[in-house]
Design a protein around this nucleic acid. Structure first.
Lengths: 137, 137
DNA sequence: AAGTAAAACGGAATCGTTATTATTTACAAA
DNA sequence: TTTGTAAATAATAACGATTCCGTTTTACTT
């Protein structure tokens, strides 16, 4: 997912095309990991002094619904990153800087047999630790 | 993990043996799934009118540290269940009633190869859906 | 250019959780 | 059995993340 694709999706669905939304998208486009609402606010604040959390969260959730962003939850905080569209995947997440690495392995294939009678709706597989760069510092 | 084992652990580590703690343990002993601080408070309230959230959380965290309980986090809420001691495992969690089913499959063995240079500290694998009983209702 | 529906503002409210301080209790040692 | 003390609790306030609400502003339509 890149900015142009994201903007096309917004247009298609009839959502407005505001400078704030462009800036939000450019933020996640340049980052390569999970970021919080607070992180985004800090990025936006200089350009839009007094921008409200309402605006931040409304757009994060909109982008999440439109699959422009994907989200997870860690230690009581929702985190967002630009969507790795297309294939099913999971993530390694660096606990220090939030950077992510895609994991291709999905355990669900090996698990089906254990779940007779249980109706599976969703699953979460995440690995936490330190990325090479954070280990060095 | 059962109540007797839990009480032995408490004794061993020099923690006090209060009626409230016995009741908290008996609650998780009789339940078979993830429960919230609020759930526990509702259970305790009739016997201890005015029991504080502080007491609830302090004991939940203590039991979590002592591995008497295990915990996870779902939709912004911490959840606790009696510990399935001994072997490494994961859970299917019913989104309706919180009941759990142990999953023996662990994906970490198949993933090691993908993570060269990344230092793994932890991982989470959970499956969400409806248990047979909740599907019926 | 005017109308309108969506977006944003700004502040307050809510939710789950944690911290603070004073009081009470369980347990052990005298 | 009494007493000392460290642990546990109550009561309340604070906290961070998130959501809600009434109003104002803005992007886009006609």
């Amino acid at each position: 997912m890149n900015m142009e694709e994201a903007l096309v999706i917004l247009k298609q669905k009839g959502y407005k095309y505001t400078q704030k939304r462009k800036d939000i998208l450019s933020y996640f486009d340049q980052e390569d990991g999970y970021r919080s609402a607070k992180d985004l606010l800090n990025f936006m604040e200089p350009s839009y002094p007094g921008i409200s959390f309402d605006t931040i969260y409304r757009n994060l959730h909109l982008f999440d619904e439109l699959a422009i962003l994907e989200s997870t939850e860690l230690e009581g905080e929702k985190l967002f990153r630009i969507s790795c569209v297309g294939h099913h995947h999971h993530h390694f997440i660096c606990k220090q800087c939030g950077i992510t690495k895609e994991i291709e392995t999905c355990p669900m294939d090996n698990v089906k047999g254990e779940l007779g009678g249980f109706q599976v709706e969703d699953h979460k597989f995440e690995i936490y630790g330190r990325c090479p760069s954070c280990q060095a510092s």
